[in-house]
Design a protein around this nucleic acid. Structure first.
Lengths: 240, 240
DNA sequence: GCCGACTAACCGCGCGGTTAGTAAACCGAC
DNA sequence: GTCGGTTTACTAACCGCGCGGTTAGTCGGC
């Protein structure tokens, strides 16, 4: 019923990660100081060390979470898609929309070089696996006729580029909702790759009606005083 | 005939800029130290201050050069293109190929936030102007029927994303030549946007035959001891 | 002898990371 | 209940390092 200590710790940890990811996206890893992240969360730098052992592990956690999302989307795409193109587009759009939700957009690969060798090797391994899986979807699509013949490697580079770029310009407060953006993006990709491209695309992303979406999106975490929260945790003697 | 002192200074300056851009692209602005750039050029940090007043001005010069290239490409595209789509694709591909040649790929917008306020405002103004021009080309293409109806803003975001991403993965030593890459990229963009999309694309970028290109590309500046070069500048009493 | 190009040595600042200490919540004994 | 000891969450103050930037001085072509 009530959250246990461990729950609260996990929630705060996620909040720290989210704030860090936000800064890393906007200013870059090296340009962001821990003091900055801490201040923005209403605590001091030393407090962050209760949740992460050092700055680099924050970045590593970003990548880890992003890759988890990537493979989950891939799984979903594989299951729900009817053909290669369908699976590819589902994977991509699931990935983008989840990252926007969970991490305020993630750097994805932007600053991979800043990771420590061990973490970096792991990331590169996973990322390559993900990219190979995407390329395999393109090949599958070419074979089943849903995707126009092309160089899968380049096609995936183009798509990843457009996706990762989103983190640089997308603002939740802007004219487009995440759902609208995701939909419009996937329609462009679909058109670029489909063997039977659509004859028209949305003229204005902001006007798109999205099927199952809660429209104006939660107005960000307005009063996020998640850290510095104290209070009794009644009922925590047994796991909830 | 022989270079004057001022010429040599200019050449060396450009070499410094190129090396800096290379590092900024690969590791990011804040992760790159001046010592690192200098060492890689075979000089000490203090030597760089003969060519640029401080680190930030190196970044500013990168952006300035990139924007010069951008507007030059735009001009060329406007002149040589037959319709909106044509002009857009010419602009983009000219931009990409020139940046690869001149700056070892440029960050373009990647770390705009690191600029000092004055330089940044200038960059943002120019970049917005460039983006507006690109969007105008999309609109023009929609009106003249060469481009599929779409949201010009999103279309340009996608294209810029794919383009800027190139700097992150392209290696001159790789399997693809800059010319092949540029051509293949523009074909993908063309297909994504054209009102009459191609039914096929290159299956392997590395196999592309490019019209007017010197193939294997100069093997980078292998023995670049441009700085630390000393020697007589015979005949420099009058401008060459 | 002058002047431009460059080096070696240095400076102060702000960063990531650490330490000692405080306040409050928790938990078992009675 | 409530009282003591333990644990968790956090702060204030501090440390050393490496950075961007500066200074004084050397070398060599003109």
């Amino acid at each position: 019923m009530f959250p246990t200590k461990a729950d609260v710790h996990g929630i705060k940890r996620q909040e720290v990660l989210r704030e860090a990811a936000s800064f890393f996206n906007f200013k870059g890893y090296h340009a962001t100081s821990l003091t900055e992240i801490a201040t923005s969360l209403g605590v001091t730098k030393a407090a962050l060390y209760h949740y992460f052992p050092n700055k680099n592990s924050l970045l590593a956690a970003c990548f880890e979470q992003a890759m988890d999302v990537a493979f989950a989307s891939l799984e979903r795409g594989r299951k729900e898609g009817k053909n290669g193109r369908d699976r590819l587009v589902l994977t991509i759009s699931g990935y983008v929309s989840q990252l926007i939700d969970e991490l305020n957009c993630c750097v994805v690969l932007m600053e991979e070089q800043a990771l420590e060798p061990g973490d970096r090797a792991k990331l590169v391994r996973q990322r390559d696996k993900f990219e190979r899986a995407l390329r395999a979807l393109v090949k599958e699509g070419i074979e089943d006729g849903s995707v126009v013949p092309c160089d899968p490697k380049l096609a995936i580079f183009v798509i990843l580029g457009a996706m990762n770029w989103v983190a640089k310009w997308f603002k939740p407060s802007g004219a487009w909702t995440p759902a609208q953006l995701t939909l419009a993006l996937s329609q462009i990709f679909e058109r670029a790759l489909s063997s039977t491209p659509a004859t028209a695309l949305p003229r204005d992303v902001g006007e798109l009606q999205v099927a199952g979406s809660r429209e104006p999106v939660k107005p960000a975490s307005a009063g996020k005083r998640v850290l510095t929260f104290t209070g009794p945790l009644r009922g925590n003697q047994n796991k909830k």
